[in-house]
Computed example of a mutant assay.
Amino acid sequence: MSMSESARFARVEALLDAALEKPEGEREAFLHLQESDAAIRTEVLELLRAVDASEGFLEAPAVPAGEHEGRRVGAWKLVRRIGRGGTGEVWLGERDDGRFEQQVAVKLLRHGVEDAPRFLREARLLARLQHPDIARLIDAGSLPDGAPYMVMELVEGVPVSHHCRERGLELPARLALFAQICETVAFAHRHLIVHRDLKPDNILVRADGQPMLLDFGIARPIDATHGDTRDLRLTPQYAAPEQLSGGEQSTLTDVYALGVLLHELLTDRSPWGELAGAGVLALLQRAQAGP
């Protein structure tokens, strides 16, 4: 029986993590001992080469944001920084090869070699998700110094909670918007991907009222969420108890975050009350205490 796509992804990622702990000269032999599938070995080796090529950039001193302005990234020119995430900086980019005009969001990896596999994983996940309500991947590649980058659809909008308040949306309109968001998340789940960071800042509503799901920086294939206790990059106010405690996660992790979001959309308040903005420990204790 052939391996499912999510199981294959989990296997590649596990081998990549294990190989990165080995000296560079021992990695290929290690993979031959651990994996009989030549295609999987080849994929892991390609990822290892990408990580190795990035190390000089990743270990260099941080580059001030202003020094990136006007920089050429593939066919794109960086205009200004528009955001920062867990694994990268996001820049407004413009097509710079004279073929046509287009604005995009360019994500550059921040410093820290441990983030390179996550960054590459995000690009691979986005390539699997083609949906009108998910910001699409347009291009990807490496800079001359080996650092990876992603070019994504530029989404201009406001967080969904702000949109509801600023427009003074009535209950039916808020519920309709939430239902559309749920359909988008369900699409990701059908493609065996758990987002793991659903919150208003990652769900922008455009001027035409279309909600767009962003930032799959800590998303995981469903099969790869089991036993994942190492990655605690999260937003505490929207994280499920199993995320806060570092336990096993599933599609229910996203369902929990959607429940928190629904509370905010219906009441314009956080369900955490005075604990809104609290840290992981306080929220975990409150979640474990129950209603």
Rank of each mutant, 00 (worst) to 15 (best):
71 R>K: 13
240 A>K: 05
291 P>D: 09
153 E>N: 01
107 K>D: 05
267 T>P: 07
182 C>I: 04
204 L>N: 07
235 T>N: 01
57 F>M: 02
35 E>N: 08
40 I>E: 06
231 D>S: 10
201 D>E: 15
283 L>M: 06
213 L>Y: 02
194 V>T: 04
162 H>R: 15
155 V>H: 05
22 K>H: 12
175 L>T: 01
52 D>L: 12
282 A>E: 12
239 A>G: 09
194 V>S: 00
171 L>D: 10
109 L>N: 06
221 P>W: 03
215 D>A: 05
36 S>H: 13
47 L>N: 06
259 G>A: 07
52 D>R: 14
256 Y>Q: 04
14 A>F: 08
43 E>Y: 07
121 R>A: 09
122 E>T: 06
178 F>M: 11
283 L>P: 05
151 V>Y: 01
9 F>V: 02
57 F>A: 12
285 Q>K: 11
186 A>P: 09
41 R>I: 07
234 L>Q: 14
288 Q>V: 12
284 L>C: 02
260 V>S: 03
35 E>I: 04
232 L>E: 10
277 G>Y: 08
240 A>V: 12
286 R>K: 14
159 P>Q: 10
85 G>F: 11
26 E>M: 08
257 A>G: 03
286 R>H: 11
207 A>H: 04
266 L>H: 11
107 K>R: 15
154 L>T: 04
188 A>Q: 00
217 G>S: 15
55 E>D: 03
118 R>N: 10
103 Q>T: 14
83 G>Y: 06
230 R>M: 10
123 A>C: 12
255 V>Y: 05
21 E>D: 14
178 F>I: 03
200 P>L: 03
52 D>G: 12
75 A>N: 10
53 A>L: 08
81 R>I: 02
222 I>H: 01
54 S>G: 07
45 L>Y: 01
259 G>N: 09
209 G>N: 09
9 F>K: 00
53 A>Y: 02
30 F>L: 08
126 L>N: 02
250 S>T: 13
61 P>H: 02
203 I>N: 07
97 D>M: 10
94 E>T: 12
146 G>Q: 13
40 I>V: 15
108 L>A: 10
170 E>G: 13
2 S>Q: 03
166 E>A: 13
200 P>N: 09
94 E>Q: 14
115 D>H: 12
71 R>Y: 01
58 L>P: 07
92 L>C: 04
247 G>N: 14
25 G>K: 13
25 G>P: 04
167 R>E: 03
188 A>L: 04
241 P>M: 11
77 K>P: 00
39 A>W: 07
163 H>Y: 15
47 L>R: 10
30 F>N: 07
252 L>I: 00
142 S>T: 09
78 L>Y: 02
51 V>S: 00
116 A>S: 06
106 V>E: 05
224 A>S: 14
227 G>L: 07
125 L>C: 05
247 G>S: 12
36 S>Y: 07
64 P>G: 05
105 A>S: 14
22 K>R: 14
64 P>C: 06
40 I>N: 11
271 P>A: 12
14 A>M: 10
3 M>A: 08
92 L>N: 06
144 P>A: 00
137 L>M: 12
85 G>S: 14
49 R>C: 02
